[in-house]
């Protein structure tokens, strides 16, 4: 069985935020909730790099370990999902998550944050696949439709890869070999002579 993984290639990401927009649109995510975000390191400086991040669907996930109502579960493909009917919006998963993935419709207001929301790897949630209920609570279940996460599908530079871990790393390995390794590599420094500085 496939083990789903995300990979973001910092050599390719151009911080266009298409993945973020695609995700918001596909799942009709409310304002203020970002299942995916793009972080830029050294913005505007030499060596600037961007990375698109969302839930990394950890093995032995920290969020799962701390949830007081134990509402997380793995799919057969290693995707970490949660059950919004059980979630009490305590915020603990956000404290535990290394990647800041869990999101809440509201922060503050007497500790009431609403049900946690996060990236589902486009695999829906604890409801019948493809049902209205599933779409309202968790967004589209593209995996059930035989499609991969839209963020990666959309990515114009194919910086963001999503899918079976073995295939993702194969693609990546091939890519590294083809473009060379290090400062002479095909990519950034070719497109911007002088290394972009």
């Amino acid at each position: 069985m496939a083990r789903m993984k995300f990979l973001c290639d910092a050599e390719r990401c151009i911080e266009c935020n298409a993945c973020v927009t695609a995700c918001k649109n596909e799942h009709e995510v409310p304002w203020g909730v970002n299942r995916r975000r793009v972080v830029t390191i050294n913005d505007g400086k030499p060596g600037e790099r961007s990375l698109s991040v969302a839930c990394m669907h950890c093995s032995d996930a920290p969020c799962m370990a701390v949830c007081p109502v134990d509402c997380f579960f793995y799919t057969e493909q290693g995707v970490v999902l949660h059950n919004k009917d059980l979630c009490i919006g305590c915020g603990y998963c956000f404290y535990a998550c290394p990647f800041g993935a869990p999101q809440y419709p509201q922060v503050g207001n007497f500790g009431s944050r609403g049900k946690m929301d996060k990236c589902t790897f486009c695999a829906g949630g604890a409801a019948d696949a493809g049902s209205d209920e599933e779409f309202k609570k968790y967004g589209r279940n593209r995996l059930a439709e035989g499609k991969l996460p839209l963020c990666a599908e959309m990515c114009s530079t194919k910086a963001l890869l999503a899918g079976d871990g073995d295939q993702v790393s194969n693609i990546y390995r091939e890519r590294v070999v083809a473009r060379g390794f290090g400062s002479g590599a095909w990519g950034w420094s070719k497109a911007y002579p002088g290394g972009g500085s």
Partner: peptide
């Protein structure tokens, strides 16, 4: 769970070898 981090970090360490190597480049 560091497997998650590993994907984000370790693979990218290999792949991003040219980051900030502007002087070299």
């Amino acid at each position: 769970w560091m497997g998650g981090i590993c994907l984000l970090v370790v693979l990218l360490v290999i792949g991003s070898a040219s980051v900030q190597t502007t002087a070299y480049a």
